[in-house]
Write a protein that binds this DNA or RNA. Structure first.
Lengths: 200, 200, 200, 200
DNA sequence: AATGAATGAGCGTTCATTCAT
DNA sequence: CATGAATGAACGCTCATTCAT
């Protein structure tokens, strides 16, 4: 049964990949199930064996991709052994994520409004890649090694992520009210102040 | 021609009202033009005399309603003559808007992600009610009477509005990660710090 | 009342001109009454004061334009005093009309299938310009001065016109089965033979 | 899969048959896709599985029917073994087609302007019935057995077909300028002359 | 005579979903 | 498990026509 399970997983991933590429290129509402299955090379009925509907596959996709951008950033952080300070580490991750957004504007459309949701809910609802590390677990481990302790560290992170994702959306996509590069110093200073506000 | 123009304005407003009520009750994508015109009591073709398509009426609606919640808050502020401090005034307005969101969850769905857009762009793009005061002009007048001066006051407001609208969305609709009432003190303290950061 | 009648005639002509230009540029079925009145600068209801519907204005237009291409050709013929032979005169007219078609492909679309109809029916049904000479009367006058007499001269002309218009349609528009220039010698030889067949 | 393919072919033919009957009875522009699918007993969406749009099904129909009238005539010719002369054979076929037009006026509306197109292009563009013999191939085989050779035999046939279809249109539908029966002798004599003109 | 706002039936088309194979 | 033909309700939108002004 291993082979069959493997094939099933392949179909699932193929559908997710096709949906992702179509959603970010053509937009969610302009992508039909037909488009997805055509791109994935499976039959229409097959879609419904794996996902309830278009909203279902989008949710899975957001989880998956949100996880990915966090992990990409965290992986990059590992190559900077000199960044030992918790707050600097978080800022590095944020900066890396914003750079991913700049490099791929379509990611913003899919993820931006769901960053904090991806951060907190991700590991609870979906396990598309069962072996993928949990963002939240990583955050807790980083916290435990931090120089300071923080009150309500989840709420602190929630505020930071909402600030980041909300304000970067227009900056990345429309350079409004300023470009992302102009925005960054303001943003990072505010993040530092939020840290200060929660430091014990 | 006065009577005709009056009737036209009535039709326009009727369509906007119907669309608003249907969008917030059933959602934008589940509301059809048919639904709107049926509710407004006009013929289908009439819709297209006033709006280009469903997206067009939504944009007008967002402008209109964003303006309204700001103005509601500002009007309420007038009854508090004791609030003379600029920062306290802004916090009062924010609090009032969040209370409007709490009272009408559907407003959140429509406006939350567009608050800052409504704040800055509103008066430029749409003038559905030509005599309505501009939010932005009000903000500038408040600024001019403030005790302190602020660097980049627009950017400051942008950060505040994105923080507020982003973080209140889940709190209002899903009590996540905490209820709005639990969130408010955190939020307002962060806003105060942002003020501090921009004060000259 | 002369002035009013003049204004009315102006509106009528304006509508005809707009309809012509739109029909030949965008096609009959892709032109709406709205388009016509917008282009003509009159109100929608006004259209219905002058024409029954879109088909009505098209018929008037075909008459008008068919008359015009014939008269253009006939006028040009007047400058060739040396062409005294009836058959040569008809061939000259045909050639001139085909050249008008080549110069303005859109004329073909509108008129080609109606050439003989324009020739025979024109003066009976429509009198858009009451003082315009009748094509048919011109033909009869040319006939009366001809060297030979012809059996069934109307039927002869009918066959010639159908042959010309039918075969030139694809040649002008699509160079199919050959270009108009390649087709012409074949066509004119056949026309000469039809003359021969009807000569008494 | 044989059964499925058979059902598909049935649906296709059913749609073509319904479209034909509606186009010729009510006219192309007054026939809606709704009418066609209702008549064919299939769902609206099914139409779009088989044809791109209304123009697509009309083109297929013209091909199909043009082929049919030619083949009907050719089949009838087979029962007249005494007709061995090429020119007589062609005249027989023409006469047979005109009789089909007389018997079914609606055929004229659909086909008349497309006879030569059906003759030449038919077999290139559409193969609704893959096993149907090509009109053009039949013509070439008839030519090869002819007593005489002809210059430009395709162009010759083009002129004949355009003459026939153009002049018969008004005669069949409106008895204008004369009835088809009165027209025929004129027509056939002209066709004979065209033969003479191209005979080598 | 002229207007143009309003109508609403009807258009062509899409697409999530089902189900017989 | 997988297929893909078939469905048909629902979509956004057009436009010839009417009629109060």
């Amino acid at each position: 049964m291993n082979k069959i399970d493997y094939n099933k997983q392949q179909k699932r991933i193929s559908l997710l990949d096709s949906a992702f590429s179509l959603f970010i290129n053509n937009g969610f509402h302009k992508t039909s199930i037909s488009d997805i299955v055509k791109d994935a090379g499976v039959a229409k009925g097959t879609f419904y064996l794996y996902f309830k509907d278009k909203y279902d596959i989008r949710n899975h996709l957001i989880s998956r991709k949100a996880n990915q951008v966090f992990l990409n950033a965290y992986t990059a952080l590992q190559t900077h052994a000199e960044k030992t300070d918790f707050e600097e580490q978080v800022l590095f991750i944020i900066d890396h994520i914003l750079n991913q957004f700049t490099a791929n504007h379509n990611l913003v459309t899919l993820l931006s409004k769901h960053l904090s949701w991806g951060f907190f809910k991700n590991f609870l609802l979906f396990t598309p890649e069962p072996d993928a590390p949990s963002i939240f677990a990583i955050y807790e481990s980083m916290l435990s090694k931090a120089q300071y302790a923080y009150r309500s560290p989840e709420l602190m992170m929630y505020l930071i992520l909402e600030l980041i994702s909300g304000s970067s959306y227009n900056a990345v996509l429309y350079d409004q009210p300023v470009s992302l590069n102009e925005l960054k110093p303001h943003l990072y200073q505010t993040v530092r102040q939020i840290f200060g506000q929660y430091r014990i």
